[in-house]
């Protein structure tokens, strides 16, 4: 590998590493609506208005993008959402 190629690989890896991750909460027939609002406020510190808006989006659209952040933080938030019993996943943000 030439120095130029090596730099290209390192740059590609850095770009990949720097990509942000979406935290998505999925619709659920069991969790109470008020509980979902409570959890969004607890975990993300969202206002009642924003937490309610996101909860309604989950309820009506089947899912909601609740945060976009670096991978480590996204993992932490998905774990916290799971601890509270919500269905949540993380995925790389599309370019």
């Amino acid at each position: 590998m030439t120095p130029h190629e090596s730099t290209q690989v390192e740059t590609a890896e850095k770009v990949e590493h720097d990509r942000l991750w979406n935290v998505i909460v999925w619709d659920d027939p069991i969790n109470l609506m008020t509980y979902v609002v409570y959890v969004f406020q607890k975990i993300f510190g969202y206002s009642t208005q924003l937490a309610t808006k996101l909860m309604k989006e989950v309820h009506e659209s089947g899912k909601s993008l609740v945060a976009t952040e670096e991978r480590e933080q996204a993992e932490l938030h998905v774990s916290q959402l799971h601890q509270y019993g919500l269905q949540a996943t993380m995925e790389r943000q599309e370019y």
Binding site: I30, A88, E91
Partner: peptide, 9 residues
């Protein structure tokens, strides 16, 4: 349901 997937990947 108690231990859901964190990613589809």
């Amino acid at each position: 349901r108690l231990f859901p997937l964190g990613s589809e990947d």
